[in-house]
């Protein structure tokens, strides 16, 4: 079965949803992410939905579930790139995306994750740290 790829950047996990997901694919993404947060000891999860043409109640619930599970595993989730038409439709549908932090784009999303997890830098700090260890 096809899967949505999960990338690791520092101690964050990045997901960019590029296909119209059927429900079982959405559920497998939820399961895979929960497993990876634990395995990779991730502190943040960034989900890019800029390619999604709709977010219906099922996908909305999946995003809320991911955020809730991540929170229990001590990671924060930020959803980025929601299209304006999707936002308008979500509100009219009656979905509030409870517990899901959002940001306009990936860059702001990463900043938000860092501030939610109480840090200033994700990559530069770690690279410096690694460089120092090699010296």
């Amino acid at each position: 079965m096809d899967r949505i790829p999960i990338l690791k950047l520092g101690d964050c996990l990045l997901v960019s949803i590029q296909v119209d997901m059927h429900d079982r694919l959405a559920i497998s993404l939820q399961d895979d992410l929960t497993e990876r947060i634990n395995k990779d000891r991730a502190r943040g999860v960034l989900i890019d939905i800029s390619a999604l043409e709709i977010v219906d109640s099922f996908i909305g619930r999946m995003l809320s579930n991911i955020a809730a599970m991540a929170r229990v595993l001590d990671a924060r989730t930020v959803v980025v790139g929601m299209r304006p038409a999707v936002a308008i439709t979500l509100v009219e549908l009656g979905l509030s995306l409870e517990g899901v932090a959002t940001a306009l784009n990936v860059e702001r999303g990463m900043e938000l994750i860092l501030s939610l997890t109480g840090r200033k830098r994700l990559l530069a700090g770690e690279l410096n740290h690694n460089a120092r260890r090699k010296e």
């Binding site: 429900d23 043409e53 709709i54 977010v55 219906d56 109640s57 099922f58 299209r83 304006p84 038409a85 999707v86 308008i88 439709t89 009219e92 549908l93």
Partner: peptide, 17 residues
């Protein structure tokens, strides 16, 4: 329009599910 399309597709998705 994009908003009209999105609303109709979202409604169709809910009812088809």
């Amino acid at each position: 329009t994009i908003v009209e399309q999105t609303k109709m597709v979202t409604a169709a998705s809910e009812l088809a599910r």
